[in-house]
Each structure stands twice: as C-alpha cells, then as structure tokens.
Amino acid sequence: MGPLNIEPTEFTPKINFDPESSTFEISGFSRPENVIGFYRPILKWLEEYNEKVLSQNITFEKSLLTINLKMTYFNSASSKFLLDILLEFMKFHSKGNKVEINWYYEDGDDEILESGEEMADMLGYAFNLIPY
C-alpha cells in the first residue's frame, strides 16, 4: 500500500502517512472550509491500511506505529476529526500494535499544549508532549 501525502494549504494541514516506516504525520494549520471533505478520505485511508497492512501481519511481533502531530492551530470542527483519526489508532492498539503518539507544541503555546493534554485525556492514552 502506498503512502498518503497531502500538501499543506493556507487552510489545511500537511498529511504524510507512510506504511513502510509506520509513521503518520499531521502538521500545520487546520480550518478547512469543507472539513468533512478534507478528513473523511484520511479516515477511509486508515480503514484500508488496517485491512491491507495491519490485518495481514500475522506474526507475533506487531508493528510500532508512530504518530507525529505538530499542529500550529486547528478549529473545533477539525478537533473532532483529529480525535476520530486517533481513535482509529486506538483500535489498532487494541489489536496488539504498539502506538506512540508524539504531540509537538511551540514552546510557550499553552493552547496547543492544553489541547494535547485534553486529547490524551479523552483517549485515555498517554501522549509524549514535546516542546520545540
């Protein structure tokens, strides 16, 4: 399965999901005019990734999936979809895959830091909160 690469725009973040390295990056700014139209294909890609990649791995050693979130801003409608994306990874985790979530925030940006803490709380899963 090929990677999912979406270049950033003024209103939407950069997406780089790479099945080969098992790294999944979302970075930048998110307030899409059509939030459903932007995020639904990403969720669909993750469903396919589960079927075509993760479910095919029947070895004892499961993958380590690394999620790097480096958001500078996201509106409330985007937060719903970012949470939905992370919930997909929680499903992968419940199937035995290791999941590491790195939440980057600009040093001093309490809003993004708090959003990371709140998302971690909602998922009941620890994030690595990393200033830059």
Binding site: P32, V35, I36, A77, K80, F81, L83, M122
Partner: peptide, 17 residues
C-alpha cells in the same frame, strides 16, 4: 469532552463545539 465524544459533525461541518 462529552460533546466531541458523542456529537456528530453536521452537514455544514459544525461539531457543536
């Protein structure tokens, strides 16, 4: 937290948040 975990996104993209 309650709203984001339970709510659906409306056709206009609002999530009630």
């Amino acid at each position: 937290k309650q709203t984001i975990l339970s709510g659906n996104v409306s056709p206009k993209g609002g999530a009630g948040l």
